[in-house]
Amino acid sequence: MSDLYIDGEMLSRVRRNLGNIEDLLGKPIRAMADIDAKAMGTKDLERRMEDFGEEWEYGIGQLRKFSKGAAKTLAHIENTFEKLDLDLAAALSKAAKEK
């Protein structure tokens, strides 16, 4: 039988880092949305810059969304494991008293 072990500090650190990524990516998303392709001069370059901005805005938005979801999932794992650990400790304590 194996022991179940989760490094709580590491889990918390990863969750915080993912949360920070979500915040960090908000700035480039807004910057990409503000690109004015008309300043480029030619129609073809304008169109390509708009496409570039839209693709990056979408991609960064997806990274932001996924990092937020991953941070939320890790928080749930962390909370569930803490509850499981407390429940297990209580059950073991009760079993020891019954002997």
Rank of each mutant, 00 (worst) to 15 (best):
Ser2His: 01
Tyr5Cys: 04
Gly8Cys: 06
Glu9Tyr: 09
Arg13Ser: 14
Arg15His: 05
Arg15Phe: 01
Arg16Ser: 05
Asn17Thr: 10
Ile21Leu: 03
Leu24Ile: 07
Gly26Val: 01
Pro28Phe: 08
Ile29Met: 06
Ile29Lys: 10
Arg30Asn: 10
Ala31Val: 06
Ala31Ser: 15
Ala31Asn: 13
Ala33Glu: 08
Asp34Arg: 04
Lys38Cys: 02
Lys38Ile: 00
Ala39His: 08
Ala39Gln: 14
Met40Ser: 15
Met40Trp: 04
Thr42Met: 04
Thr42Asn: 12
Leu45Arg: 03
Glu46Tyr: 07
Arg47Asp: 13
Arg48Gln: 13
Glu54Val: 03
Glu55Asp: 15
Glu57Trp: 10
Gly59Ile: 01
Gly59Lys: 06
Leu63Thr: 04
Leu63Cys: 12
Arg64Glu: 01
Arg64Asn: 00
Lys65Gly: 03
Phe66Leu: 11
Ser67Ile: 00
Ser67Glu: 04
Ala70Asn: 09
Ala70Leu: 12
Ala71Thr: 12
Thr73His: 14
Ala75Leu: 10
Ala75Thr: 13
Ala75Gly: 13
His76Arg: 15
Ile77Thr: 07
Phe81Ala: 01
Phe81Glu: 08
Leu84His: 08
Asp85Ser: 14
Leu86Ala: 14
Leu86Glu: 14
Ala89Phe: 08
Ala90His: 00
Ser93Val: 00
Lys94Phe: 12
Lys94Glu: 14
Ala95Asn: 10
Ala95Cys: 02
